[in-house]
């Protein structure tokens, strides 16, 4: 085995990859939530549509997008492998086990939380990304931009459904809990723990895990209540 394969098949090496891909996904969330703020602009989705048009055409963004798919895939595969290995590490369990004090619920349930986030990602991609790429999306004509796909309309009609809106909101709660442990855990895994910065990492992680999923959850809620096509 070469030193590189050996490194990344070791326990710490795999954890390192989980952390790197997890942090990359966190960076992605920042970009994604910022761009999607355009949904709140009361212009019948024009700014949002122009933004998605730009995002689909740009080569740099295309590279980042494929990196993102790779990161999700790697994150899932590695964590599943680690999870299977961890189960095997204790073939006979305890009859009585009390969770240790100060150990967060999220940290003990990352596998379940991650799986729920994965379910969400699949639903989310199937709805918006797939329809944008292969589905039939109505177009809209703007003076300068010309005829472009009206993704805003897809978003609007999805979130005019109560169950779909509710699903998104609930899924964001799971994401929040995944991040609540994941954010700080990634820094610990990378060895970035220092007396001075650790409290900062923890509180930034805490607020990030609340604020970002909260803003994401506001989007379907805003559309359901204020831009609903059925109302």
């Amino acid at each position: 085995m070469s030193w590189l394969t050996q490194t990344f098949s070791s326990s710490i090496g795999r954890k390192f990859l989980t952390a790197i891909t997890g942090l990359f996904l966190i960076f992605f969330l920042v970009g994604h939530v910022t761009g999607n703020l355009l949904l709140f602009k009361p212009d019948e989705g024009r700014a949002f549509n122009e933004y998605t048009q730009f995002m689909t055409g740009n080569l740099g963004i295309m590279i980042v997008r494929y990196l993102l798919y790779a990161a999700i895939l790697a994150h899932v595969i590695i964590t599943v492998l680690l999870g299977i290995h961890n189960r095997k590490a204790r073939p006979v369990g305890y009859t009585k086990q009390v969770p240790s004090p100060h150990v967060s619920w999220s940290s003990r349930n990352m596998g379940i939380l991650g799986t729920l986030v994965l379910v969400f990602i699949v639903i989310h991609m199937a709805n918006f990304w797939y329809s944008l790429k292969w589905g039939v999306v109505p177009t809209v004509n703007y003076a300068e931009a010309g005829e472009i796909k009206n993704l805003y309309h897809v978003v609007q009609s999805s979130f005019s459904e109560l169950w779909y809106t509710a699903l998104y909101v609930v899924m964001m709660v799971f994401l929040a809990f995944h991040l609540m442990h994941g954010f700080q855990s990634a820094f610990q895994t990378l060895g970035l723990r220092h007396k001075k910065y650790w409290p900062i990492i923890r509180s930034v992680g805490f607020w990030f895990s609340i604020i970002v999923p909260f803003i994401f959850a506001l989007m379907p809620l805003y559309i359901y209540f204020f831009r609903n096509i059925n109302h």
Binding site: S10, S11, I12, R14, K15, L82, H85, N86, K88, A89, R90, P99, S100, P101, H102, V103, S104, S107, R108, M110, H181, Q184, S185, Q188, T189
Partner: peptide
């Protein structure tokens, strides 16, 4: 670390229960 892995211990997920 190589020996630790070979012995069949699990992977750390930073729950911090050990220190507690």
């Amino acid at each position: 670390v190589a020996q630790m892995d070979a012995e069949g211990f699990g992977n750390c997920t930073n729950t911090q229960a050990c220190s507690v």
